[in-house]
């Protein structure tokens, strides 16, 4: 009887422990899914009359690749972000908080359209959220 309980306990514990070991990155389908999400999000951002002008001269494919790479690295994927730091890439662009929120909404919409769950969406946003402070109002920091 005692032994039986112990076996059940061990099985239960390993089952529990087994779940979190799948990273968020693997759970959502890896870079393939992220690439789809940011392909859609970047399209939406470039078509947004308030946001599009910010990306004049930035090829869509480059932004898509950088966002995919960066997010992959932030959610436990096997990527190294090769782009500029957020502070550097937003230098002198004077991104407002309203524009930042608009980008977040486009990314949220893209995640939903690609079929990520609400819970996966929140966990990805949690990884990206701290970037906000290095994105908005970066025009004065280097002087």
């Amino acid at each position: 009887m005692k032994k039986g309980l112990l076996v059940i306990l061990v099985v239960a514990l390993t089952a529990c422990a087994g779940q979190p070991s799948v990273s968020l990155y693997d759970e959502i389908g890896g870079s393939e899914t992220l690439d789809k999400v940011f392909g859609l999000a970047v399209n939406r951002i470039y078509n947004d009359p308030k946001l599009g002008p910010h990306f004049n001269g930035v090829p869509k494919s480059h932004l898509r690749k950088m966002l995919t790479e960066q997010t992959c690295a932030l959610i436990g994927g096997p990527c190294t972000y090769t782009g500029k730091s957020m502070r550097e890439s937003h230098q002198e662009r004077n991104v407002t908080e309203a524009e930042f929120y608009a980008v977040v909404e486009h990314v949220q919409q893209a995640m939903r359209l690609i079929g990520l769950t609400y819970q996966q969406e929140n966990r990805i946003l949690a990884a990206l959220a701290p970037l906000k402070k290095d994105i908005i109002y970066q025009q004065t920091t280097t002087i």
Binding site: Y118, Q119, Q120, N122, R123, L125, A126
Partner: peptide, 10 residues
Amino acid sequence: LWLGGAMGNN
């Protein structure tokens, strides 16, 4: 607010 703080729910 904890994004995803309650089993993926905010």
